[in-house]
Simulated assay, not measured.
Amino acid sequence: MESSKSSRETAINITESKSTKGKAAGTAPATTIVATTKAALHPRGGWKKGVAIFDFILRLAAIAAALGATASMGTTEQTLPFFTQFFQFHASYDDLPPFLFFVFANALASGYLVLSLPFSIVCIVRPHAVRPRLLLLIFDTVALALTTAGASAAAAIVYLAHNGNPNTNWNAICQQFTDFCQAASGAVVASFVAATMIMFIIVLSAFALRKP
């Protein structure tokens, strides 16, 4: 095999029949016609299989980041005692709509990423399949939009919690609710990490969809 294309040669022998053998003197000897058929075959997997394997690994990492962001934000709360134990300040993620949206967005994205793993395995087994990869590309874009929107909304609230806004008399609360702010900040960072990985997954899918 000289290249990725395989070539097959078929030899067809044509001999003289008995009826014509004696009629023509000096007839040319038996001729051999060589028919060459070349079939273009895709290499087994090739670079597309490597892209599909890397895609699967990135999906696992994005699932871990998105689930970590969801769990961290979903369990974020802190209670501060004020004078007595009967009068307390309490901060929880569900007190703020952007944080609530953050939890739902990352939970949906992580759930989708888990469901996309079988399709990613199909792309590893059949690297040249177009439909599964195109389907993943479409839904990956939706997951990226959800994750980025949730992380951006939560990041704005975390910034206000750390720095406040003197123009609107919004005070920074992170000096009191330190644990709450640390957990929320970590969740936002994890969500942006998941969004970055999904973005790389989309780039890989688009790259793998191009013709070889």
Rank of each mutant, 00 (worst) to 15 (best):
Y93S: 11
A39R: 14
P166A: 13
A28N: 14
P97Y: 03
A161N: 03
S191V: 00
Q78T: 02
I33F: 08
N106H: 15
V114C: 14
G74V: 02
Q176I: 06
A206K: 02
A105P: 04
V125A: 13
F180K: 00
E16T: 12
H42Q: 13
K38T: 15
F87I: 15
P166F: 08
I53T: 13
S17Y: 10
A206S: 12
V125C: 10
K38P: 06
W47Y: 10
K5C: 09
L60I: 05
H162A: 06
F192W: 14
I12A: 07
L144I: 00
I63R: 04
L115M: 15
T32S: 08
S19K: 10
A35N: 14
M199T: 09
S185A: 14
L96M: 15
H42R: 11
T31V: 07
I121A: 07
L209K: 12
V125Y: 09
D179R: 15
A206F: 06
C174V: 00
G150L: 00
T37K: 15
H90F: 06
Y159L: 05
A25F: 12
K21R: 15
E9A: 13
A154C: 04
F82K: 12
F192T: 08
P127G: 03
L144W: 00
I198W: 01
L135S: 09
S191E: 00
I157D: 05
L117K: 07
P81K: 12
F119R: 04
F89S: 13
F99N: 01
A156S: 10
V142F: 14
F180Q: 01
E9L: 13
F83D: 14
T32A: 08
V114K: 06
S116R: 14
L204V: 04
L100I: 03
I173G: 09
N163G: 05
L135E: 09
S72E: 02
Q85Y: 12
Q85N: 15
A187N: 01
L137G: 07
P132C: 07
P98C: 06
Y93F: 15
Q78N: 09
Q176K: 13
M199G: 10
F99G: 01
A105N: 05
G68C: 02
K5E: 14
T27V: 05
C123P: 03
A151Y: 00
A145P: 05
T147R: 01
A206L: 05
P132R: 07
S4F: 09
L146H: 00
L144D: 00
C123K: 03
G68I: 00
F54N: 14
Q85H: 11
V51R: 02
A71Y: 13
R210G: 09
A11D: 02
S19R: 14
F89G: 11
A105M: 02
V188L: 05
L209Y: 08
C181Y: 01
L41A: 08
I201M: 04
A151S: 11
L204E: 06
R59N: 13
F177I: 01
N167V: 10
G26N: 15
